[in-house]
Each structure stands twice: as C-alpha cells, then as structure tokens.
C-alpha cells in the first residue's frame, strides 16, 4: 500500500491559533465570573462538552442511524454506557432530594402523543441534516457551512414550535402525565431494572452488529 500514497502536502500549523483561542476563552470566563460565577461555570461546562464531543467524534445521531444504515453499533453501545453511568449519578442526586422531601429534580416531562410525534420529527431531521443539536453545534465549531445553515433553521423551527406550543398543550400535553419510573415501580426496581434493561439492549445491539457483518447483505 505504501507505493500508492501521495507525498505529503505541506500543512499549516493551527496549534498557535488554538492557544490564542484558549487564552480568549479564559478571558471571557474571567469577564463572566465578574458578572456572575454561575455563568462562568456554565461557560466552562460548555467548553468541556464541546471539546469532548469533538475529540471523541461523539454523535448521538449515529447511535440511532448507524444500526439502520451501516450496521455499525459502536456509537449506540457508547451511548448506552453513557446512559448507565449518568443513570447512577442522576439517581444519587434524585434520591437525596427524595430523602430530603424535595421535589425530584431532573428532566421529567409529560409523556404522550406529542412525545412520539416530536421525537419522530427529530429523528428524521437529524439524519437528513447530518447531526442533532449537539452534533450541529460541534460542526458549527468545526467549520461546516451546511451545519451553520441547519442551525439557523433549527432556531427558526424552535421558534415555530414555541409558537404552536399552545395548541400542543391544549390538545395533548395537558392530558399527558409526567411519569417518573421510581414512582411507579419503586426506587429499587426502577433503578436496577433500568440498568439491567440498558445492559440487555447493549448485548442485543452487539449481537445485531455481529449478524449484520456476518451476512453478505450489507448495503441498504
């Protein structure tokens, strides 16, 4: 294979620009911390999320799309691992709130027809646009003009959804319950049950990939 390779072109070194950006990021952080420490911390979280997403090329879209389209499940399995770790951490925070008699924190939202329709719309959109919310932001940073465009329309779509939220609230959301699984099954069964279920999905997905790669029919 060595023979077919072209000689390397001369590459620009962007590392110094990276250092300059890092300095800028720190300066903005300091300015924000004078305004409010909370904002500076959220800034730091954003930078960390973006950095990790890009370094690992982490793509939540691919966790749904690749099993369907290419048969690869490596990102699906990675997301399941992330879900398992986050479930443990989240449960600790939620359980301590429960013990204190506080309202249970977390992203617990009404579940109903709006969830199904919205999620399906999102699923279609993320595949054709080549990235979900996190993926779009990350690719905006990487310089993909297609994602700059999709971010603009993402924002327009969000505004549109916010405008129509009244109709969705009246028609579906107001009649839909918020279901926190430990309320239904108890803490033990909900927590360990979720971890076991995620584990089973992990094994299933691994088996699925094995099947896809060991049969000839690979293309769609």
């Amino acid at each position: 294979m060595e023979a077919v390779k072209k000689s390397k072109k001369k590459k620009a070194n962007q590392f110094p620009y990276g250092i300059a950006l890092l300095v800028l990021i720190v300066i903005i952080g300091i300015i924000l911390s004078k305004q409010s420490p909370q904002l500076a911390v959220r800034w730091a979280f954003g930078i960390a999320f973006g950095f990790v997403l890009q370094k690992a090329r982490f793509c939540f879209t691919a966790s749904f799309r690749d099993p369907v389209l290419t048969g690869s499940t490596s990102l699906t399995r990675a997301v399941i691992v992330a879900l398992m770790i986050a479930t443990i951490g989240f449960a600790a925070i939620q359980y301590s709130a429960y013990l204190n008699g506080d309202t249970i924190p977390g992203n617990i939202s009404p579940v109903g027809i709006h969830t199904a329709i919205g999620a399906a719309m999102f699923g279609i959109g993320m595949v054709i646009a080549g990235g979900c919310a996190s993926g779009t932001l990350m690719r905006v940073g990487e310089g993909y003009m297609m994602q700059w465009l999709s971010l603009i329309f993402f924002i327009i779509g969000s505004l549109w959804g916010a405008k129509d939220f009244e109709w969705w609230t009246e028609t579906f959301i107001s009649k839909s319950p918020q279901v926190f699984l430990p309320d239904v099954f108890g803490w033990g069964i909900a927590f360990f049950g979720q971890l076991v279920l995620l584990g089973l999905i992990f094994i299933f997905v691994e088996w699925y990939e094995y099947k896809r790669f060991n049969t000839k029919n690979l293309s769609v």
């Binding site: 939540f60 879209t61 992203n107 939202s109 009404p110 709006h114 969830t115 199904a116 329709i117 919205g118 999620a119 399906a120 719309m121 999102f122 699923g123 279609i124 959109g125 993320m126 595949v127 054709i128 646009a129 080549g130 979900c132 919310a133 996190s134 779009t136 297609m146 994602q147 465009l149 999709s150 971010l151 603009i152 329309f153 993402f154 924002i155 327009i156 779509g157 969000s158 505004l159 549109w160 959804g161 916010a162 129509d164 939220f165 969705w168």
Partner: peptide, 21 residues
C-alpha cells in the same frame, strides 16, 4: 437537507420536550 432537517429538529424538540441530549 439542512433547511428541512433544521426545521424538523427545532419543531420536534419543542413539542417533545427535548432533543438527543
């Protein structure tokens, strides 16, 4: 693809209470 995908994701995430994250 970018226009359609963006609109679908934006609208979908609003009514479904969230995105992939």
């Amino acid at each position: 693809a970018a226009v359609l995908g963006g609109l679908l994701m934006g609208y979908g995430a609003r009514i479904a209470f969230g995105c992939n994250i």
